[in-house]
Nucleic acid binder design. Structure first.
Lengths: 107, 107
DNA sequence: TGAACATTTGAAGAAACGTTCAACTATTGG
DNA sequence: CCAATAGTTGAACGTTTCTTCAAATGTTCA
């Protein structure tokens, strides 16, 4: 007869700011372009131009998304001469993507 | 000296439809309201009205988001008299949320 | 049957998003 | 120093998203 009240459920939820961060994180994976970029960087560190070639997208579009991913601390860019090499900046990225793919492939 | 070409990277990426499904999945977790709903349902199966109370949101808003989650096959609703009880419809949900939370909490 | 209740639905409006284009900054090599 | 190359940035745009409100549906019970 273990009853759980609404108030108790409310208390068990993560704080609002945690929920917001969580949603922000998942939002990063919630766009096909960003998902592809992350997948690419999982394979190999790449320059912006290379990503643009591989994904067949404009440099500008790729750059805009890289900025978003950078601000979420999921990737980082390192200047090398006039080019910028991007790499994953987070260990969880791979794990999270993997779980997602497992789910998607198990239908 | 193992070189990886752009073409090879392209070939290593998941198919576009997989990437799209993946993004669709993560999009579900990418909204605070939906994240909260999923968190609640992780604790206990709940009626729409209960969710609306717990989250302090209009019934309509909750119902709209439940429809989205339902169409993504992450929750399911079962009619019980005039109420509808919602529950998680997917084993991965908990794992994915957990990984996300781990990430968010490890800053 | 009809009033009350629980939920769904559709339209509307505001805000957020993603791409494009053009302009800009930064770096290198001639 | 100038031109060429790599990348970033901001504004504009069309699209999608989320909430609200009002109306509709479905269910129970008096």
């Amino acid at each position: 007869m273990s009853e759980i009240t609404k108030q108790e459920i409310r208390n068990m939820l993560p704080d609002d700011d945690v929920i917001y961060s969580l949603a922000e994180l998942f939002k990063m994976f919630g766009d096909p372009t960003r998902a592809k970029i992350l997948k690419c960087l999982q394979i190999k560190d790449l320059y912006v131009g290379e990503l643009s070639d591989i994904l067949n997208m404009s440099i500008s579009a790729v750059s805009h998304q890289l900025r978003v991913l950078r601000s979420a601390k999921l990737v980082k860019g390192t200047k090398e001469g006039k080019e910028v090499k991007y790499s994953l900046d987070d260990d969880h990225v791979t794990k999270i993507l993997e779980y997602g793919l497992t789910h998607v492939n198990e239908e």
